[in-house]
């Protein structure tokens, strides 16, 4: 999707959450005041493995007849890494740009290897 008319573009929905210090914050409000890149990777490894049986690569087309070995791997986090690498090279250390990684992982990034 290219650049959109800001007035017609969707806004980040309200997402209230808890920080490690126990404060309640709204992610949508955190993203205000500066350009922010949101990296969404909703599926954890177990779900992706299940999906590999029936999804044909990045197009997401269902393929119930495909043998599992023939189906390209679908990895949301690997998708995001292709954007994260140049992004970090360009804006690493720049406080004017926010980068939020949104994942579906209850225990956070430090435990992610447990499901991978």
């Amino acid at each position: 999707m290219g650049a959109t008319d800001p007035q017609k573009a969707p806004t980040v929905p309200s997402m209230e959450g808890l920080t490690l210090s126990g404060e309640t914050v709204n992610v949508a409000k955190l993203a205000r005041g500066r350009p922010t890149v949101l990296l969404f990777g909703f599926r954890d490894a177990a779900r992706v493995r299940e999906a590999e049986k029936r999804v044909d690569g990045p197009t997401g087309v269902l393929r119930t007849d495909a043998p599992r070995a023939a189906v390209p791997r679908v990895h949301a986090q690997a998708n995001l890494a292709t954007f994260a690498t140049p992004l970090r090279a360009a804006f690493g250390g720049d406080d004017r740009v926010g980068v939020y990684e949104v994942s579906r992982c209850a225990a956070g990034p430090w435990r992610r290897h447990a499901v991978g």
């Binding site: 959109t4 980040v12 205000r32 005041g33 922010t36 997401g60 679908v74």
Partner: peptide
């Protein structure tokens, strides 16, 4: 199932 990248401006618009 895919990774999605969104660029959001200072006002919260994608």
């Amino acid at each position: 199932l895919l990774g999605h990248v969104l660029l959001v401006d200072a006002a919260g618009h994608v």
